[in-house]
Write a protein that binds this DNA or RNA. Sequence first.
DNA 1: TTATTTATGATAGTAATGCTATCATTTAAT
DNA 2: ATTAAATGATAGCATTACTATCATAAATAA
Lengths: 225, 225
Amino acid sequence: MKLHLQIKMNEALFLRNPEGSELGKNILKHSIQLIFKAGFEAFTFKKLAEDIGTTEAGIYRYFENKHKLLVYLTAWYWGWLEFQISFQTNNIKDPTVKLKRVIKLLASAVEDDEQTSYINESLLHQIIITEGTKAYLTKQVGEDNKQQFFKPYKDLCAVIGKIILECSPKYKYPKSLASTIIEMAHFQTFFMNNLPSLTDFGKIKKEAEIIAFLNDIVFTSLKKS
Amino acid sequence: MKLHLQIKMNEALFLRNPEGSELGKNILKHSIQLIFKAGFEAFTFKKLAEDIGTTEAGIYRYFENKHKLLVYLTAWYWGWLEFQISFQTNNIKDPTVKLKRVIKLLASAVEDDEQTSYINESLLHQIIITEGTKAYLTKQVGEDNKQQFFKPYKDLCAVIGKIILECSPKYKYPKSLASTIIEMAHFQTFFMNNLPSLTDFGKIKKEAEIIAFLNDIVFTSLKKS
DNA sequence: TTATTTATGATAGTAATGCTATCATTTAAT
DNA sequence: ATTAAATGATAGCATTACTATCATAAATAA
């Protein structure tokens, strides 16, 4: 049996549901490829349309603008990652083991999981590293937040914060520590690959080092309290 | 005596030195105001020119494009901050006290310091929180890095990494911890003000809480090793 | 002092971006 | 078979992101 993982998306993110048609799925698929290749700044709906073989107007029927599309992709990613985490930490009793697992999932390269043919999770993960924060580092963050665009990110953060509290019920900063490890899993990866002198992994370039660093931060913080 | 703090800027960042003329200083001053007000995405040289009362072409004589201007502003900020840190931690012997001071400087609102009339450090600090990472989270990060655009950031990171090692000579991740506290000082501030459920300071909204969180992370990490 | 370089202002123009609108056609639902 | 919905094709328009040209003002060197 082929499981069909469908992530429930906030309907305010799109004009027409991209998962409901071939063109829509193509928009998702090719936008991931194009943002990955060109970067978000150089990414335009015109180029995307050419890639797909449709017209600009066709894209605009699905997404209001490229910002909404980026928010859609990041929301999809966080939803997918939360599912991966709940799936892969299921049946683990020891919260410490669970949290280690979470950190590994956050900082590891993702392999394309084939369940969703139109989303290449590996590429999407790399996009999130470089472009993910641009979804909320904007002037409209307040309105976007009111519309719940960042709920998947917040949910993930809450899940991780809970595991942190299970490890160490008296720890005072579970949510901030959660958002810190999420962001640092990405930033340290970006730095390692692009600005290596900002890290201690420049020579080795192994994600295992980043995982060790995050584990060190998290478990020394939690041991104390 | 009025001290005139001049930060030595990388000449590849500009076409004409903005600190060398009235128009140039106006570009710096008004770009900070306008980016703060409109956000970097909506910021254009046209609007900037109108604000200043000059023409678009006038701006282009100083900066190739708005990306370079942003990189210039961030580089200026990191250079300024490194000076602040070296100044304000001067004569402090105890590296632990020194590091606490650094964390406080990283996470505190900045008051405009009047030494540089054309740069409002308080506004610039707020810009760096929201827009700072966009200077390097781009496709051109490699070329920009080759041209040393991020040297001030790396230098600051190296300085903080050194203090970390003074506190705890065996600690394995001084540079990654340094880049982590720099970025988290900003991200936690942004989250606190805009996406408070990603932090534990939503209700209180005090930077003192962020400082306490960073201190907790840093000094538990260092105590152990 | 005049001559000359240099910075600015004013204006134009062009290709690309970020949309919106219209209408014909294909495809799907009733 | 009729109607509704999605797509394709084309047009158009305001803004953005530049580049170029020429005149003038200010600074500087001869």
